[in-house]
């Protein structure tokens, strides 16, 4: 009996392939790919807010930089306080409002004073939730203020 197709020997099959053998390379590349994917999921998803830690009374101490005649930056201080579970903002330039209104107020503030010449100090009370402090910082950064500091706990009289 004759087979319709002759089975080829291993050598003959091998001869039909040409070029490098890709299989091990694909294996290795896949492992590397998975490694980078896994490390990316652990590293991603977060960033940082830069915050100064001002010292008490360091506010208007002289001009910065080489120019002795340069004006010190306009310094605004806003206090955060909690009343009935809501966070309120009180301070120069923004008046008194709820935290949700702070972005608007800061926009008005930076409309009158150039944002890059403003130093904003946030002074939260001890009971203010930390996410609200971050939110105030976020609002300030969104208004274009880059120099933001956070004071120690405000003591309520």
């Amino acid at each position: 009996m004759r087979r319709p197709f002759r089975r080829r020997s291993a050598m003959a099959v091998w001869d039909t392939h040409f070029g490098p053998n890709m299989t091990p390379m694909v294996d290795v590349v896949m492992v590397i790919l998975i490694f980078f994917m896994a490390s990316a999921t652990f590293a991603g998803g977060e960033w940082f807010l830069k915050t100064g830690i001002p010292r008490e009374g360091s506010g208007r101490s002289g001009a910065q930089g080489a120019d002795p005649l340069a004006l010190p930056p306009a310094r605004f201080e806003i206090a955060l306080a909690v009343e009935n579970g809501r966070t309120f903002v009180r301070g120069q330039g923004v008046g008194e409002c709820e935290l949700t209104e702070l972005p608007e107020r800061l926009k008005q503030l930076t409309a009158t004073a150039p944002a890059d010449e403003v130093v904003l100090i946030i002074r939260p009370e001890a009971t203010v939730p930390y996410p609200d402090v971050v939110r105030a910082h976020d609002a300030a950064a969104r208004a274009g203020i880059s120099r933001i500091g956070m004071m120690d706990i405000a003591t309520t009289p």
């Binding site: 977060e46 960033w47 940082f48 807010l49 830069k50 915050t51 100064g52 830690i53 010292r55 955060l80 939260p124 009370e125 001890a126 009971t127 203010v128 939730p129 930390y130 402090v133 971050v134 910082h137 976020d138 956070m150 120690d152 706990i153």
Partner: peptide, 23 residues
């Protein structure tokens, strides 16, 4: 904020002038 302020105060005492807050 009290807990974070405590750490910031410790940083200030240790001579750190600015920190970054991870968000």
């Amino acid at each position: 904020y009290a807990a974070v302020a405590f750490a910031m105060r410790a940083c200030k005492e240790a001579g750190v002038e600015s920190v970054r807050l991870a968000t």
